[in-house]
Design a binder for these strands. Structure first.
Length: 291
DNA sequence: TCCCAGGGGAGTT
DNA sequence: AACTCCCATGGG
C-alpha cells in the first residue's frame, strides 16, 4: 500500500539540482523529473508540481504510516527555509544577481552526517561520477538490499559495517588512497573513539575542529559535512570551482588561498554563506563550465 | 600521453 | 605561514 504525501511550499524548488548538484550522490532519476533514493534508509520517490504560489513536493513511500517520518523528509529537503527571501536578499549583490538568474532554484540538504562524511572523504581529488560509483559500490558490498517501486535499493553501511569491510576491500572497490582514511574513520566511529552523533549540536568552530581530527578530513571536507548534513549555513566550502568563481567575480587580480576565500565568504555572507557557495559552485561547474 | 577531478597531509623553507 | 610534492585511479 503506497503512502503518498503532497507538501506545498511557497517558492520554486528544482529537484534535479538539489539532489544531483554536488551535495548528494545517491539519487537516481526516473522519468519525468521523478527521483528515487533513500532517506533514513527508507526508499522514497520524489517529484515536484509547479503551482501558482510555488511548488508542491510529492513523496511516495511503500510503507506503513508508522514507519514514515514526514518531518525528517521535510528537514532533509530543507522545505521550511524561506528560499525566496534568501534569493531576494542575495540579489542585492550584483555578482550574485546574475548567477541566481542563470541557475536552477535548489535547496541545501540536511543529509545523514555519517553518509555525508563518507561521501566527502571520497570526494578528494575525485570527480562526481566516480564519487557516485564509489558510494554505490560500497553500498552494494554491504549487501543490505531492500526492494521498492520494483527496484533494488542498497542501504548505506553503518560505521561498524564499513569498518568490517576493511581497507583492502575498500581499495579493491576502487577508492584509491581514500580507502585508508575511510577505513580508519569507520573504525574510530564504530569503536566510539569519535562520536559523530554529538557534532550536530556543536558550534561551527568546535564542530569543524573536531571533524578535522579525522584522517582525510581537512577544512573543505569538514565544511561540506557541516553545510550539507548539519545545517551550518555559515560554512563556505572552497574547492577549485568555488575558488575560481570567487576570484573571477570578486577579485580577479588578487590571489587568495582556499582558507582565505572560505573566511572571506563567511564574513561577507554570514548565515547565507552555504547558499552562496553552492550557487557559485553550481554556476561555475555546470553553467559556465571550463574555460 | 597528459590533464583533471567538490583535497589532505607531510615535509621543506 | 606559504610552498612543494605525493597520495590512486578513471575518464576525457
Amino acid at each position: 500500500m503506497p503512502l503518498r504525501f503532497k507538501i506545498p511550499i511557497n517558492y520554486d524548488l528544482d529537484l534535479d539540482s538539489t539532489l544531483d548538484g554536488g551535495q548528494s550522490f545517491n539519487w537516481r532519476s526516473g522519468n519525468d523529473g521523478v527521483w528515487l533514493g533513500l532517506i533514513e534508509n527508507l526508499p522514497v520517490k520524489l517529484s515536484i508540481d509547479k503551482i501558482q504560489s510555488g511548488s508542491v513536493v510529492k513523496a511516495e513511500y511503500k510503507l506503513s504510516p508508522a514507519q514514515v517520518d514526514l518531518d525528517r523528509l521535510k528537514l532533509y529537503l530543507d522545505l521550511d527555509t524561506p528560499y525566496e527571501a534568501i534569493r531576494n536578499r542575495l540579489n542585492s549583490d550584483s555578482n550574485l544577481k546574475s548567477v541566481i538568474k542563470s541557475i536552477p532554484k535548489f535547496n541545501i540538504l540536511n543529509q545523514d552526517p555519517w553518509q555525508t562524511l563518507v561521501s566527502f572523504i571520497l570526494s578528494t581529488q575525485s570527480n562526481i561520477p566516480r564519487i557516485k560509483r564509489n558510494l554505490e559500490d560500497i553500498s552494494i558490498f554491504g549487501k543490505n538490499l531492500v526492494t521498492a517501486f520494483g527496484l533494488p535499493f542498497y542501504k548505506f553501511p553503518n560505521p561498524h559495517e564499513l569498518a568490517a569491510m576493511g581497507e583492502n576491500k575498500l581499495r579493491a572497490l576502487g577508492l584509491g588512497y581514500r580507502a585508508k582514511n575511510l577505513g580508519t574513520v569507520a573504525s574510530l566511529i564504530s569503536e566510539n573513539s569519535f562520536n559523530i552523533k554529538i557534532v550536530s549540536a556543536m558550534s561551527y568552530d568546535d564542530a569543524k575542529q573536531y571533524l578535522m581530527t579525522l584522517p582525510g578530513v581537512g577544512p573543505k571536507v569538514a565544511d561540506c559535512v557541516l553545510a550539507f548534513s548539519m545545517g551550518h549555513t555559515s560554512a563556505f566550502p572552497v574547492d577549485r570551482w568555488v575558488s575560481r568563481g570567487v576570484k573571477r567575480m570578486y577579485s580577479s587580480t588578487l590571489k587568495y588561498s582556499d582558507p582565505d576565500i572560505s573566511n572571506w565568504g563567511r564574513e561577507k555572507f554570514g548565515d547565507d554563506a552555504a547558499y552562496v557557495q553552492q550557487m557559485i559552485f553550481y554556476y561555475e561547474r555546470w553553467v559556465r563550465g571550463r574555460d
